[in-house]
Amino acid sequence: MIYSDVSHFLRDGKAALAKGPVALILLEDDVEVASTIAHQVGCGFASVIVIGAEDIVGSGDDSPIVHRVAHDMMVDNALTDVVNPIIAAASGRWFYYGYNAEYLYYPFCEHRSVGEMVAFNMEERRDTIMTFVVDLYADDLSAAPNAVSRDDAHLDKSGYYALARHEKEQGYLERQLDFYGGLRWRFEEHVPYERRRIDRVGLFRAKPGLKLRPDHTFNDAEYNTYACPWHNNLTANICSFRTAKALKRNPGSAREIGSFTWRNSEKFAWGSQQLLDLGLMETGQWF
């Protein structure tokens, strides 16, 4: 069954939100839809809600935990128009959100479920897990013109940095940083300034009044922090072809980019240990 829109899903399919954590997969196109769904199912989510245009939302895994909602994710404000009503309908539930051709990795994900990670995080009195988007890209763009190849996926092993987050009225914000790196840093002339950050609060616990904003931050300042005041917390990665796809789809950047590979490229091993070794995520106190 494909629900006709988010309101239809929240009226007739809300039982899918009864247990968590829940994954929201937002489909912008038909690239790697099946692999994205299968990966998140394998992480151990209680439900996987796939949301996208009706002509693509029906593809992929037929698992009974997968539910499908029709909504065009390429229209203005699609992210907040989809996620915020679901937050409001499921207070207390843990959510992950990501796009197609994006894959969640967290410490020990090969042996532990996302539910185990969330349970540990709650013991640390944290309602969020900060995720950092790690750009993936094909090494050979002649073989993969859209820059997407799971067999030939590469990532940047260095070039990541953070700056203190500053707001005009509040000054520097406590335990908040703007993180940069990957393709958005190397090809920043093709990426609008407001879209260059790679930090995303990709795992969070819904509560009354909570709202996701278009820049992937929340209206609650504590939700945007990377760690609690007393020690570092675990973090996770969203390994994503999304930026590479966009740079090769855009006529201006596509003509100027002959390869994404550089001296600090490394083949992606599709596992958590590589990401831990590169310092792209950390275990915190979770062992």
Rank of each mutant, 00 (worst) to 15 (best):
Y96C: 11
G58M: 14
R68L: 05
D62Y: 02
D61E: 04
I86C: 10
N100E: 04
P85Y: 10
V75R: 15
S91R: 09
D72I: 09
R93D: 00
G98L: 01
V83I: 15
P64M: 08
L104K: 12
T80W: 04
Y97S: 02
D76S: 15
N100Q: 09
G98H: 02
M74S: 13
H67W: 02
D76P: 12
V66I: 04
D62R: 07
R93V: 01
V69I: 06
A78P: 07
P85C: 15
R68M: 03
D76C: 11
D81S: 15
Y103S: 03
A88W: 07
A78C: 12
N77A: 15
P85R: 12
E102V: 03
D62P: 04
N77W: 14
M74Y: 04
N84P: 14
T80A: 13
I86K: 10
Y99S: 07
W94A: 12
A88I: 09
T80Y: 05
T80C: 12
Y97L: 08
A70M: 12
L79A: 11
A101V: 15
A90P: 02
G60R: 04
Y96D: 00
G98M: 03
Y97M: 03
D72P: 06
P64H: 12
G92Y: 02
G98Q: 03
D61S: 06
A88C: 04
A78Q: 05
W94M: 05
M73C: 12
G92V: 01
G92D: 00
Y99F: 05
I65G: 09
D81F: 09
V66N: 07
P85M: 15
M73P: 15
D62F: 08
V83K: 02
D81G: 15
A88M: 05
S59E: 10
D72N: 15
W94R: 02
N100A: 10
F95L: 00
I87Y: 06
A101N: 15
I65K: 07
A88V: 06
S59A: 12
D76T: 14
V82S: 11
L79P: 13
G58A: 14
D72T: 05
N77F: 13
L104A: 09
Y96A: 03
N84K: 11
Y99L: 03
A101H: 14
N84M: 14
R68C: 03
F95G: 00
V83T: 01
A88Q: 05
D62H: 05
